[in-house]
């Protein structure tokens, strides 16, 4: 295989890694939109908070004498999911539920306010500097000639991709097989009718927020371990990218969010690899504009009659 193919595959692997995490965060946007038709702009902040929680939990647990890295990560992940879910649940109760019967724009403004509040609250509580953590999992797989052309995929990249795939399979099974999943799909189709049929749509909506937050927590944990730094501003750009991914794949569609995340990640990494790293975000957001102009329903989304 020639050197340029190795390089291409390396960039694809890098893109899949970052794309996986976009997909995890994008699920939170798309599920909420699918059911109540609003964009939860505070979702990026849940991701940011979960990274902080993961860091604090990792530091706390390792101080308590747990030194097996996998046990440590698993326990910190559990803590992070729990706290993030609590945030997701409370955000819905505080900022959206009282506004559910009002116009969509009002809920949207409430979401933006919530996002600003959370970001500044963390900035005050944790300081605005980068908090860093040493890498816990080092090394990786090397394919090809170590001295010549090769692909290097770090263990952390593999963990990110595998975890994302597992989460996606779990979510798909939950939505398609479980009672609650069926209720979710019913709410997405017609929330009024679902209520008439005796399903408590409030619970369904709460579950949707909790699932989105839990997946964001998984992304927060993984990216926290991968990059090793967190600051109160990471949620904004990550949220924007994930939102782009959700729109790209078709907002409201879960497979669409996964696909959109991967496409976005790969196109970013190919731009940085073949053009220049400075055009990465330009390409990402141009993609959003183009999709909105020419394919507003997204790749896997259903064309929708505007309800406003």
């Amino acid at each position: 295989m020639s050197e340029s193919i190795f390089y291409f595959l390396q960039q694809i692997a890098n893109g899949l890694t970052i794309g996986s995490t976009y997909a995890l965060i994008a699920i939170g946007y798309t599920m909420v939109y699918g059911i109540i038709g609003m964009i939860n702009f505070a979702h990026g902040e849940v991701y940011m908070i979960s990274t902080y929680v993961a860091f604090i939990a990792l530091a706390g647990l390792s101080m308590m004498g747990i030194d097996n890295p996998f046990l440590l990560i698993a326990m910190a992940l559990a803590v992070s999911i729990l706290v993030a879910s609590a945030y997701g649940f409370s955000i819905e109760r505080v900022a959206y539920k009282p506004l559910r019967s009002s116009k969509r724009l009002i809920a949207l403004i409430s979401a933006i306010g919530m996002s600003i509040f959370l970001q500044n609250y963390i900035r005050l509580a944790q300081g605005s500097r980068d908090i860093a953590m040493p890498s816990m999992i080092q090394g990786g797989f090397l394919f090809g000639d170590p001295d010549g052309s090769h692909i290097m995929i770090s263990y952390m990249q593999v963990i990110i991709m595998v975890t994302t795939v597992l989460c996606m399979i779990g979510l798909t099974l939950f939505i398609s097989r479980s009672r609650m999943g069926r209720a979710c799909r019913a709410c997405a189709q017609d929330i009024g009718m679902t209520n008439l049929l005796g399903i408590n749509s409030n619970n369904v909506i709460a579950v949707t927020f909790v699932i989105g937050a839990a997946l964001a927590a998984v992304a927060g944990m993984l990216l926290g371990l991968y990059y090793g730094v967190v600051n109160p501003y990471i949620g904004f750009i990550a949220g924007l990218k994930a939102f782009t991914a959700a729109v790209l794949g078709g907002i409201g569609s879960i497979p669409g969010a996964m696909l959109g995340g991967l496409i976005l990640g790969i196109s970013e990494s190919l731009t940085a690899g073949y053009l220049s790293a400075e055009y990465k975000d330009v390409v990402a957001f141009s993609l959003l504009v183009l999709i909105l102009l020419f394919m507003p329903q997204g790749i896997l989304g259903k064309p929708e009659v505007e309800k406003i």
Partner: peptide, 20 residues
């Protein structure tokens, strides 16, 4: 000779390019 975006977190593509 290349620019990056301040505040970015993922430089894996850049690193791969440096290697190449």
């Amino acid at each position: 000779f290349e620019g990056i975006t301040a505040g970015d977190k993922d430089f894996s593509a850049l690193v791969a390019k440096l290697k190449r």
